[in-house]
């Protein structure tokens, strides 16, 4: 029980420290100080800073995805489900701008392994997008990669806003994100109608 809470504390500390100082500048000593644990305890859990950061990253992604999935499942029609999921995502990111920036923009600073974690975290959104196939006329014959495209478009829009230091404007991106999610499945005309319909 104690070991578990120390691990949780360390993972949270790792995200805070790296978000604040940058991955390159953060040291294991910074992480242990922030978490209030000893060096020995740190190395009992992780081999190095990178291993700790990757675990911390997965932790953040997991929590984020749970929030998105919960909001998504509260609606019926696929476009409404997508809208709810995206709104939850934007809300969560806007609450924690430093962590959002780390998660979507600066993650590459920690190397290719971290970038793979980032892409894997995004792919967890796949089932939410894939429902578009059942919703869209002719959806079954769309390219296998369609959900990855939509996810890439959504992530690109969010990362661009975060890179410009505009985290507080993220909720205003909802219409564009919804358009980007729907358009590969139902096309620009229908996507525009869906986006406008609920405003």
């Amino acid at each position: 029980m104690i070991a578990r809470s120390q691990r949780e504390r360390l993972l949270e500390a790792a995200v805070r420290v790296v978000a604040e100082k940058g991955y390159g500048a953060a040291t294991v000593a910074d992480l242990t100080r922030e978490a209030g644990i000893s060096r020995t305890t740190f190395y009992a859990m992780f081999d190095d800073k990178e291993a700790c950061f990757l675990a911390a990253y997965d932790n953040v992604a997991e929590a984020l995805m749970r929030r998105v999935a919960k909001a998504y499942e509260g609606e019926e029609r696929w476009p409404d489900r997508a809208r709810a999921g995206l709104a939850a995502l934007l809300g969560a990111l806007a609450e924690e701008p430093a962590i959002a920036r780390l998660a979507l923009v600066d993650v590459g600073a920690a190397g290719p392994a971290a970038q793979r974690r980032y892409r894997a975290a995004l792919q967890r959104l796949t089932p939410l997008f894939e429902e578009g196939r059942d919703f869209a006329p002719g959806g079954r014959s769309l390219p296998a990669n369609t959900s990855r495209m939509a996810i890439g478009a959504v992530a690109g829009l969010i990362a661009d806003e975060l890179a410009e230091g505009r985290a507080e404007y993220l909720p205003g991106l909802l219409s564009d994100l919804l358009f980007a999610t729907l358009v590969p499945y139902i096309g620009p005309a229908a996507a525009t109608r869906e986006v406008g319909g609920n405003e």
Partner: peptide, 20 residues
């Protein structure tokens, strides 16, 4: 038709995600 202001960014994000 009115397309979103950010449309080229969506297009680029989708392509670069697949490539990455």
């Amino acid at each position: 038709r009115e397309l979103p202001e950010n449309i080229s960014l969506m297009s680029a994000g989708a392509v670069s995600g697949l490539g990455l």
